[in-house]
Amino acid sequence: MTEPREMIRVEKLNKSFGDLHVLFDIDLKVNESDVVVLIGASGSGKSTLLRCLNFLEFKDDGNIIIEGEQVEADTHDLNKVRQKVGMVFQHFNLFPHKTVLGNVIEAPIQVKGMSKKEATKEGKRLLDKVGLGDKYDVYPSRLSGGQKQRVAIARALAMQPDIMLFDEPTSALDPELVGEVLETMKELGNEGMTMVVVTHEMGFAREVGDWVVYMNEGRIVEEGKPDQIFDHPKEERTKAFLDSIL
C-alpha cells in the first residue's frame, strides 16, 4: 500500500488573542481524502484552529504545512494558498448583492480569470449537484438556511480546492434543515474530498468521519477513529463531553 498523501500538517501551533491563550501546541495531520472532524465544547479552540488553516487567523508560533509546503504569512501569497483551501462558514456569508449563480462564479472569474461562459457552466453543474438547479437567478435572501449553506458549499467548490474546511456548517440552521446540508457534505466526503469539519453533529462525525479529534480548552485531548472515540474513549474528559451531548 502506498503512503497516503499528506494534505495538512500542523506542528506545535500556538495562538493567543491578547492575553487569552486559545491554542496550545496543536499537532494535527490530515491525509488526502480524509474527513477529519473536530469536536469539543464552545470555546475549546476548534474554530480558531480551523481558521488558522486558511490564514483567516494568524498563528503565534508553530508550523502549518499545506500540501507539503510550510506556509508563512509574510513570505507566501496567502491568496494562492486560500484558493486550494475552501471554507464554509456557520453563517453562510453569501454575497447578498449577487444571485446564487453570481455567488458561485464570482471567484473563478475574478481570481482564476476563468471566462464567464466556462465559470457559468461549471457553476451550474455544482449548483445542480447540491440540489439547487432551479435557483440560479434567485438572490440569497429568498433561500432557506439549508439552501444558503448548499450555495456556500458550491461557491467554495467552484474554486476547485484540494481541501474543504467547514466551520460549524449546520449550527445556524433550523433542525429540519440540518439533514440536507449534512447529506451534501457526506456526498462530498464519499467522493474523496479532503475535509476538516468543526461540528456538533455527532451522527455525522461517526458516520462520515475518518478521524475524530476532541479538543478541550485549546488542547487536543484525544483523537482516533470514530468508533474508538465514541465507543471507547480513553480520556475522562472525552467521556464527560460525550455524555453531556449525547
Binding site: N54, Q83, M87, N93, Q110
Partner: peptide
C-alpha cells in the same frame, strides 16, 4: 459584516478585489 470579507478572502480574493467586488457594492447600496 466581517463575514463578507472573510468569505471573499477564503475564496482567494485579494484585499482590494474584496473591497471592490464585495464590500463597496454593498456599502454603496
Amino acid at each position: 459584516t466581517k463575514g463578507q470579507t472573510e468569505a471573499a478572502r477564503s475564496l482567494g480574493m485579494s484585499r482590494s478585489l474584496t473591497m471592490r467586488r464585495v464590500v463597496l457594492p454593498q456599502a454603496f447600496r
